[in-house]
Simulated scan of single mutants.
Amino acid sequence: MSAADDQSGPLVLSEDRDGIAVLLLNRPAQRNALRFESWTELAAALREVSGARAIVIAGAGGFFSAGGDLKSGPAHGSGAMAPAGRVQHAQGVLAQLRAVGVPTIAAVEGAAVGLGWSLALSCDLVVAASDAFFSAPFVARAVVPDGGLAWRLTQQLGRHRAASLLLRGSRLSAADARQLGLVTDLADPGSAVDHAVALGAELAEADPGAIELTKRLIHSAEAAELAAFHPLELAVATVAQQRSAASSGRETFR
Rank of each mutant, 00 (worst) to 15 (best):
G190V: 05
D207I: 04
A221G: 10
R171M: 15
L186R: 09
A163I: 06
V197T: 01
G158V: 11
A228P: 10
L213I: 07
R171L: 07
D185N: 07
L157M: 11
G200V: 01
A223S: 12
D176G: 04
A177P: 02
L153H: 12
S170F: 03
A223T: 07
S191N: 11
R168A: 04
L203N: 01
R216Y: 00
L217T: 03
L165W: 00
A228S: 13
I218F: 06
T214G: 13
E202K: 04
Q155E: 12
D194V: 04
A228E: 15
A177G: 14
D176Q: 13
H160F: 14
S173G: 08
G209E: 13
S170L: 10
A223N: 11
A177C: 03
A204Q: 05
E202C: 01
W151V: 03
A201P: 02
A187K: 07
L165K: 04
L180Q: 13
S173T: 12
K215V: 04
V183N: 03
T184S: 12
V193D: 07
L180H: 08
P208E: 00
G181W: 05
F229H: 14
L182A: 11
T184Y: 01
P189E: 03
S164D: 15
L165E: 01
T184V: 11
L213G: 10
G200H: 02
D185Q: 11
A192S: 14
Q155S: 01
S164V: 12
G209Q: 13
A224Q: 14
A162T: 02
P208D: 06
W151I: 09
A163T: 09
G209T: 12
A175K: 15
D188F: 06
L186C: 05
A192W: 02
V183L: 11
G190L: 09
D176H: 08
A228N: 14
L153M: 09
S164N: 14
V183W: 02
Q156L: 06
P208C: 07
R171I: 05
Q179M: 01
A221Q: 15
A175R: 15
S173P: 07
R171W: 08
Q155G: 01
V197A: 10
D194H: 00
T184H: 15
L165V: 02
D176T: 07
E222T: 11
A187G: 00
F229M: 09
A174E: 09
D207K: 04
V193W: 09
S173R: 10
S220N: 02
A192V: 04
T154G: 11
A201H: 05
R152H: 13
R178A: 14
G190I: 10
F229D: 12
A187R: 00
R216N: 10
E205D: 03
L153N: 13
I211F: 00
G190Q: 04
E212T: 13
L167V: 06
E212G: 09
L217R: 12
Q155K: 10
H219C: 07
L182Y: 01
T214E: 08
L167M: 05
A223P: 07
W151D: 11
A223V: 05
R216C: 10
P189W: 00
L226A: 01
V183F: 00
D188A: 15
A174L: 10
V197S: 06
E225Y: 01
G158M: 11
A206G: 01
A177V: 09
H195W: 05
L165M: 03
G200A: 00
G209V: 02
S220H: 08
A227D: 14
L157H: 13
Q156T: 15
G181K: 07
L182I: 12
Q179V: 08
G209N: 12
D207C: 08
S220L: 08
L182N: 06
